[in-house]
Amino acid sequence: HSFLWFVKVWLPAVKAKGLEISGTFSRRQGHMYMDMSFINKALQHMTDFAIQFNKNSFGVIPTTPLAMHTPLMPSQSIDISLPLNTIGPVMKMDPLNNLQVAVKNNIDVFYFSTLIPLSVFFVEDGKMERQVFLATWKDIPNENELQYQIKDCHLNADTVSGKLQNNNIYTIAKRNVEGQDMLYQSLKLTNGIWILAELRIQPGNPNYTVIAHSTKIDQFQLLFKNY
């Protein structure tokens, strides 16, 4: 299974005249979703719901309108999985994964912003051909590398590979040099950007090192969080 991110309250009821929205993002069978719960904490019913996104770095837009066909009564909640795609207009946000959302109902229009986990953008065909991987790695200068420590991890290299593969981070090759496992990995984002990585695991050392190697270094910090 792919990793499930924590559900967060995106829009507290006190800021939205009684409407509370909590949610998370997920990727299932090659599709992105915004999984949300709408709760009516007001004393009146709510109808006429609609959702809209501001332009964002990855061109994320809802694939369908919000499917809420019946009024949301006081104290009632509804779970909605909104399918998303990345064919919308692109505008670079800071941070890169920031998403600004507008939700309307019969009472008012409300706004919130949230961060989309980068892993939602890792596509299923992110396994780079081995020959292409080697050539690409050579073409990227070492200045385009960034290193990160993953602390307190107690899995072996194969388990790590399996877990990452479930999240569309693919191990292209594994080598053991002087007792240290070196995993060469690739992933591709929905916008076509490839990221190459080297993951180092030393026996008996719970701290792993991941070294990202890509021409697009602005996404590295987000990537490390996903590792």
């Binding site: 081995r130 080697l134 080598r175 040099v177 240290q180 070196m182």
Partner: peptide
């Protein structure tokens, strides 16, 4: 034969990274 070459290339890469 070509795949052997790739296997070796990855070994060389890993070694060069460990002992630059």
């Amino acid at each position: 034969e070509m795949d052997d070459g790739l296997e070796e290339a990855f070994s060389r890469l890993a070694e060069s990274r460990t002992n630059p």
